[in-house]
Write a protein that binds this DNA or RNA. Structure first.
Lengths: 230, 230
DNA sequence: ACCCTATCTCGTCACCTTGACGATTACTGG
DNA sequence: CCAGTAATCGTCAAGGTGACGAGATAGGGT
């Protein structure tokens, strides 16, 4: 760090906010109201304030876009993107954060982004250029990170409400990975891993069949051995 | 991204450069020649040039500090650190990169950092404040990332020279994880994973015992199933 | 030449996890 | 009451892993 003259950079945070909505893996996107890329879809984000820490900026964006407190869900740093020319206006380094939230009752209670909505990730990733800037690549990185983390962490519970059934948890895995899992083996795995699930004693019958037990997320954060997609 | 006025940031890259040196897991540190933290140890790093991409800046630092081309070894983005006040001079966001290199013949062929050296990571991490700025935390993150990645990738070969024996590869795992592994089970695992190792046909007798076959790194980058530390 | 030691390499065996799948339970809707 | 649906429990074979025995092949000392 030879601190003499150094070029001016702008620093932003961008949010890859993922959820599972009616059985589909979806990401929050906003329609840009200004140039450049006016009218195009983009990831929510904004400039970091002068005395604001990076995680605080990401939490502020999360609140502004979803009205969600981070008590439920999960937020972690994803990666940083700073290629020259990624923003045509000036040199911008963007620190991307990955957020996982349960299906929101209010689609988006946000204040800023009136034109924000969840869209299925497979349709967003199918064609390059769906999103402005390099947000295609950022979204792809976030989706891959989320898919990988379901294998060896209990992060899938971040997509669920506070209380959920084994079947609902399995639906999360199936939506995120785009595969079908055997209900019996999945049930054995998640109930057999100590600390993954905490029983509430209650049961529910939201679906058609036999009532299912309700669980809360347990204290275990890392799955050993992992739950592998084949 | 509401592009109006935004505060000025400086952007740097810092390098967590790890190797295995005489059986010990070690990181490259430099002695700072200027304020702040003059005379203290720190991770190598520097400001990003105006039209330089972030990976290019990291590669440049790697070359300047070690003279090593990235053909051997491995370099990936680790995380970004931007807390207000982490640099007392001004607001600085640092993008940290993680580099894994084989034991270098020339300790450090670098040009800039005359006072750079590899130091064992356990001694650096034992006491908080070993390194300037927040480099303690950055180093800890890099070390944990490297330890985790040995489990499910073939990245341990990045610590080895172009040709190596199974025993040398096992020594890498033992040094990085700080554990002892059963030589027979380890041999079965790495030779039984398709694409992990590529046989050269040659053999060597660097150690005391029976000659060992020499391998090169194979095409497989991800280990399925992983090689778990117990 | 001989033994000792160190290391590599191959085998064996018990245990655990997983994938495939049958069977039972307990609810809803007609 | 019956069909449909989903939850939950069991069974079994296949594959991976930890613990460990045994042979192979070098160097070094006497």
């Amino acid at each position: 760090m030879a601190g003499s003259d150094h070029p001016p950079f702008a620093v932003t945070v961008d949010l890859v906010l993922l959820t599972v909505r009616s059985g589909r893996f979806a990401a929050l996107v906003v329609e840009r109201g200004e140039q450049p890329f006016r009218g195009r879809l983009a990831l929510p984000g904004g400039f970091v304030h002068p005395d604001e820490d990076l995680p605080d900026a990401a939490l502020r964006e999360l609140r502004e876009e979803t009205g969600l407190a981070p008590s439920l869900g999960h937020l972690e740093q994803l990666a940083s993107y700073g290629a020259p020319g990624r923003d045509p206006r000036q040199r911008v380094v963007s620190v991307a954060y990955l957020g996982l939230v349960p299906d929101l009752p209010e689609p988006v209670a946000g204040t800023d982004a009136a034109a924000s909505q969840f869209m299925p990730v497979d349709s967003l990733l199918r064609t390059a250029g769906s999103l402005a800037f390099d947000h295609d690549a950022i979204l792809a990185d976030g989706v891959e990170r989320a898919r990988a983390k379901l294998e060896y962490t209990s992060l899938a519970t971040a997509f669920c409400p506070a209380e959920f059934t084994v079947g609902e948890l399995r639906a999360v895995y199936e939506a995120v990975w785009g595969v079908e899992l055997d209900p019996r083996n999945f049930h054995r795995k998640v109930t057999g891993t100590p600390g993954f699930l905490a029983s509430t004693g209650a049961s529910t019958t939201r679906g058609g069949g036999r009532p299912a037990q309700l669980y809360r997320r347990g204290p275990t954060r890392t799955l050993m051995p992992p739950l592998l997609r084949t």
